[in-house]
Design a protein around this nucleic acid. Structure first.
Lengths: 187, 187
DNA sequence: GCCAAGGGAAACCGATCGGTATATCTTTTT
DNA sequence: AAAAAGATATACCGATCGGTTTCCCTTGGC
């Protein structure tokens, strides 16, 4: 029983490559080379490249949301504090050297038809993040938790895009200032 | 003298295909087929696919910023009104059947290295849009025009991402509501 | 009429794409 | 020990990639 199963090796390496270089620009040969796995093994675990892409996106969803929730809950205690702390978490994310934007925004750009399985999965990821925000807003007893979570989510998306496209790693600060204002009015 | 020069034919058609299907996913053969132009003609006008991509991005920057400014100024008169009207303009944009997100966000996803010419051009486009916002904020005599324009820009980016990834064509509304709040506090 | 220029169609280039097949070797199970 | 399963490297497949070249035809200027 290896520390990492072949499947996990492949997904882990594909995740890195897809995130850094894009989906269409990353070839199967490159993936098996970096993952140190034969092509047959890859196609033994995944029926097609598309399925591998979906698997990496599912993995990323799991890793990323866990990261956000864990870090947020580590930095603050009350739900209301957490709604603000998220902006500190994404700021730290922006400053990672491997930061290359939101993988789901990137994937939606490459798989732009709204009914493509990858695009659907991206929308689902965004829904789950917003759901987390809404839960926090409900716990914090905000007046309009649904609207508040939508607005905070907008700020997060905007900051993420700004950080990636313009290389502005402090893009979370103005977003956080708006969030403070929103929170002051939401109770 | 043709109505559209060969060069314009190529750029126009490449723009449509790159925007709809992505850059790496769109091949040269497809472009010349749709543009009804021979491959030799294309490579007579552009040294490489990368140069064609850059040319389409420059064209898009010109078309898009003109569209935003024209529509914004058509819908409102005072600078302050215009800072709000922009959100109506992007809402109309989201509802176009050909809407496929912000082409520069999409391009940044595919050309993610920050020093890639395409990525640089995307950052430049975003800078020019933000500059327009800042000019309006200055004209409107906002207290902190730089900060205000940054914040409004965040909202626009966030709404655009939300509209594309989640197919939420009303994503501009919550953004506009926040913008109204920001404007009420900025004077 | 002549001639250069530009464009068109299509062959061609080496490389790479996603994906399959084969044949050998190692590991695990029984 | 034997058999089954899984992994390996490698060759191969047809298609497509970005890009070049060849040949022919049209067009406009003189």
């Amino acid at each position: 029983m290896p520390a990492l199963s072949k499947r996990e090796q492949i997904v882990t390496e594909a995740l890195k490559l897809f995130y850094r270089n894009g989906f269409h620009a990353t070839g199967i040969d490159r993936i098996i080379s970096e993952a140190k796995v034969s092509k047959k093994t890859l196609y033994n675990h995944f029926r097609s490249k598309d399925e591998l892409v979906l698997a990496t996106l599912r993995k990323r969803d799991e890793l990323f949301r866990n990261y956000i929730m864990r870090e947020t809950e580590l930095r603050s205690r009350t739900p209301r504090e957490r709604l603000l702390a998220i902006f500190d978490v994404i700021e730290a994310w922006f400053q990672e050297s491997s930061f290359s934007g939101c993988m789901f925004i990137n994937a939606s750009a490459e798989f732009s038809e709204s009914d493509h399985p990858c695009h659907i999965l991206c929308a689902e990821h965004k829904r789950l993040v917003r759901e987390y925000l809404r839960d926090l807003a409900v716990q914090a007893e905000a007046q309009a938790p649904e609207e508040l979570s939508k607005q905070l989510n907008l700020l997060i998306e905007g900051a993420t895009v700004e950080a990636h496209v313009c290389g502005d790693h402090d893009a979370a600060s103005p977003a956080k200032r708006i969030a403070e204002m929103l929170l002051n009015q939401a109770f």
